[in-house]
Design a protein around this nucleic acid. Structure first.
Lengths: 208, 208, 208, 208
DNA sequence: CCCTAATCGAGACGGTACGTCCTGTCTTGTC
DNA sequence: GACAAGACAGGACGTACCGTCTCGATTAGGG
């Protein structure tokens, strides 16, 4: 079978699982060690002990490789932590729950295993909208959906105003952290995220 | 004269102004037309009618060139709009002032002349911390400082709680917009920024 | 069964005749259409509707394939012309007989069906002595032997000096034609070969 | 300036003589050591300590490189032997002069420095007519012209029939040697070339 | 106002990586 | 067990840029 692009579609059933895993590991290792711009397809192939064509057969670019490798890594990490299926805890104390989750996010953002590849993917996504859409759809949006769910529950409990749109509301505590991390606009810490949660829940204006 | 690095320091007094302008224009045009990754130093030099060495003499990388070109562009645009010195309006109505400023920001983020280079610089900054620091110091932080000033004024007027840290508070309405734009996590519009301002000022929790 | 080389010896009895013929035809067609260097094993396999391994199983290189294909072609052509067994005519007029045979050779050298593969094999033979030996033994030497026979007969008839070595003598009229064709050192025509035969039989020096 | 092909014409005045020499040497060495098919442009570039682009800038293929390298080698060898300008000796004894020259040719054909590249070029020429024309025009034809001159002189002296075409006549002694060497159809030796000269000058038919 | 030294346009250079093509081997499933 | 199909590790292809370098030809500023 051949697609419109003229490229033959490779037979996924005969794909080498060993090569795929080796490519994931090589890509993540190189991005962590040398940085994304110095990570090359040739370098990944060499480190994985794989022909370049094996990469080009299954992926369209190094960004695609890294995205899949990172998704795989995230999945493995989630499984290892027994977090599948995952949800934001619901102890009844919304502020405490959000603070806990954001503290975990801070930990992850500072984990060097995750930092290099996710920065790289974010950077690529800035300039490559196609990749960004996939990144958001497969990784970011599912996570944000958890906040939506928790906020809905909080609305049911009367802890959040009913007229608030949870999809927008969640950005009040998630985006500040994201921007500080992405753009180096400030340090990130537990204290910082706790403060953001407090401001977001109760607003800046004084109580009347 | 020669620095410790061994590189001779070029004599800025004899620098060709014409070449510099041509390089700025070429860099911005190429980033807009072909995208940042396909913009090359050779391409900039060719388009500017300039030798490659003239670029390497004055800048260290294509990111440096683009950063300067973009700073220059921003300056020109600000001058043209008579916005120097600039401040957030202070009508006494904090919510209205913030909404107005954010609407202007939405306009700018959607202006194609600005979008391509600023996305490119943001992307480079994700992976190149040195550049990010410069980008933040020269462009982002001065803008954020305006919010700090306006919030301080609001605190004096009693429109914002005195115990709120303005540098963190501003992120409640700035970062959501930034993240949506940077990561394509959602559409950006006047309605959206207005909503964010309302949520941020009054919080998500119901008034007691 | 397995040889010392470790390669299993394929069972010739189970060989697919259809595939072999298809490979011959594909190889000859590709060499004629695209030229020898652009003819690849993959291309032959694809055109023949055959797996690559089927070629590697029975031949050692594309030169081997082409040699066999060409031998097959020559055999078929000879059979079609009813020229088996073949000999140089012996009308008693040596000069006339040689001229006739060389005119036939000129025709063959200019036949496009033969030109491309035989040039290719000759070229390969220049650099690959093993193939050259096989090419000479299976194709060239048998043809040259016909000249030896005819010259021996001429010696018996007193038309050629008895002390002449026929194996060397034949090269006087065969080699000039061969070189002109191989190296493009001059045009080849009936007139040319006739002249060469005259010169060779009677020498360049004036009769004393 | 740009040619019809669209390729910019490089500025020959700024060409690196050192690189050119290094490329010649690398090409000749690799052809001699590894053989023509295993000689690659990458290999030549690496051995010469040169970028690939420097080869592609000045030559169109490895055959072009080798042709120039071989022409250069031949020129140097001729200069070293004080053979410029060169001519076939004219002692008045045509047979002796021809035998002497052909013995020198035998020596050269067996000289390993010359054998590998000239075989390679001859092989390439078989399949690449463009290269063959250049090879013939620059190397072969000038040499053959020397035979034409010597034969003309012999005709003046009455040692060769006046109605003989020297351009064809020379092939009687040159081509047999060429074919034996090119196609491995027989051994080459002084005795062999001497015999060929005798046959060619006096013919195969008995004197009447 | 000229002289001289630095900048300039141009582009060749040694390299590195690109994405493609082919090699020769190996594996899978069909006949 | 030979076959069609094609994935695989490997390696060369020819191209595009990198950052350095070397050329004249301006082009300013200090003498």
């Amino acid at each position: 079978m051949v697609t419109q692009s003229g490229k033959p579609v490779p037979d996924a059933a005969r794909r080498s699982e060993k090569s795929r895993r080796a490519i994931y590991e090589a890509a993540l290792a190189l991005v962590a060690e040398a940085g994304y711009p110095k990570t090359t397809i040739e370098g990944i192939a060499a480190r994985a002990g794989v022909g370049k064509q094996t990469i080009y057969r299954w992926w369209g670019s190094k960004a695609d490789v890294l995205l899949e490798a990172f998704l795989d890594l995230s999945e493995q990490a989630a499984e290892a932590a027994g977090q599948v299926p995952y949800a934001i805890p619901d102890t009844g104390d919304l502020a405490a729950d959000l603070k806990a989750v954001l503290r975990a996010t801070v930990d992850e953002l500072l984990d060097p295993r995750f930092e290099a590849p996710s920065r790289a993917l974010a950077a690529e996504g800035l300039v490559n909208e196609q990749l960004a859409r996939e990144f958001v759809a497969k990784l970011l949006e599912p996570q944000l959906q958890l906040y939506v769910d928790r906020l809905r529950s909080a609305q049911d409990a009367g802890d959040v105003r009913a007229d608030v749109d949870p999809r927008i509301a969640l950005e009040l505590f998630v985006s500040p952290l994201a921007q500080r991390w992405l753009q180096h606009t400030g340090p990130i810490s537990y204290e910082y995220t706790d403060t953001v949660v407090d401001y977001a829940l109760h607003g800046l204006a004084p109580r009347s």
